[in-house]
């Protein structure tokens, strides 16, 4: 592709969503200005952007706290979820014994567990555990599904050639599970952020290591609506960034040859 072609390709691809988004922001700005809506009811996007810049000393450390908690929780969920799924695939009795626990944890709303965790743990550990719990299940269930999805005929072929359990796991089941695992990872990444935010809301006050959700609550108490919007913008951007990073990671890992995964 020539540079010109590439430019028009990008314009076709990203032009419409960018345009729609800018139009929405412009409409918001216009409505606020024309109706002279006071900032404590609805701040204009320009004011939100200005607040982001002026309050960066408060908001950026909060963003880092929340983001770091999310990443830590996601890493733990990957180790725990994928590891447990591999154990499940090796021994059926492990799956039968421990799957109910995982399901109970999954179906119990995290916001209901958070107050209890806050009694047992300090605030930042409780937030981490909450984020871990919500990210854990999709990774576990997707990986378990992927490990079980290996082509039945290939399983027979491995049996015919007297493959060991380890060979069947590493050469067949893990590669077959990879796309499923990556799907679970993308879901888990988004959920880890939600879990962290929910736990921060439940934790309420939290001195030095305050996350974005705490800053939103705090700004709400002070009726600092523009800062609430600014913090909310950062939460959204963090979610988008996590999703984009994980999507890029799966595209990189899956690479050539895999394509849709199916033959």
């Amino acid at each position: 592709m020539t540079p010109g072609e590439r430019l028009s390709h990008w314009a076709r691809l990203y032009g419409p969503p960018l345009l729609a988004f800018s139009a929405a922001l412009a409409a918001w700005e216009a409505i606020v200005r024309i109706n002279a809506i006071p900032p404590y009811v609805l701040p204009a996007p320009s004011l939100v952007a200005a607040t982001l810049a002026s309050d960066r000393a408060i908001l950026l450390p909060a963003l880092m706290t929340t983001l770091w908690t999310t990443i830590e929780a996601l890493a733990l969920a990957v180790i725990g979820g994928a590891g447990l799924a591999i154990l499940f695939a090796q021994w059926k009795w492990v799956e039968r014994s421990f799957l109910p626990f995982a399901i109970v944890l999954q179906v119990t709303p995290i916001i209901a567990i958070a107050p209890l965790l806050l009694i047992y743990l300090d605030a930042s550990s409780a937030v981490l555990v909450c984020a871990f719990l919500v990210a854990f299940f999709p990774i576990l269930s997707n990986t378990a599904l992927g490990l079980a999805s290996a082509d039945k005929n290939l399983v027979d072929l491995f049996a015919l050639y007297r493959a060991s359990r380890w060979q069947t796991l590493t050469l067949l089941r893990l590669p077959a599970a990879l796309p499923y695992f990556l799907g679970g990872l993308r879901i888990g990444g988004g959920l880890a952020l939600i879990g962290a935010i929910a736990a921060e809301l439940a934790a309420g006050a939290s001195g030095k290591s305050a996350g974005l959700a705490f800053r939103i609550v705090e700004a709400g108490y002070r009726l600092n609506i523009p800062r609430m919007f600014a913090a909310l913008t950062l939460v959204s951007l963090a979610g988008v960034a996590i999703f984009a990073a994980l999507s890029a990671l799966s595209a990189f890992i899956v690479g050539r040859g895999r394509g849709s995964g199916a033959q």
Binding site: D151, N153, L154, D156, L157, F158, L160, Y161, R162, A163, Q167, L171, L172, P175, A176, L178, G257, R258, G259, G261, A262, Q263
Partner: peptide, 24 residues
């Protein structure tokens, strides 16, 4: 054994698919 479907590993190239029985 040859199955009704080609039953290849989609993540592995042709060489690695044919290499499988030897590898095992």
């Amino acid at each position: 054994f040859v199955f009704q479907e080609p039953t290849l590993m989609p993540w592995a190239n042709v060489f690695d698919n044919v290499y499988l029985p030897l590898r095992l």
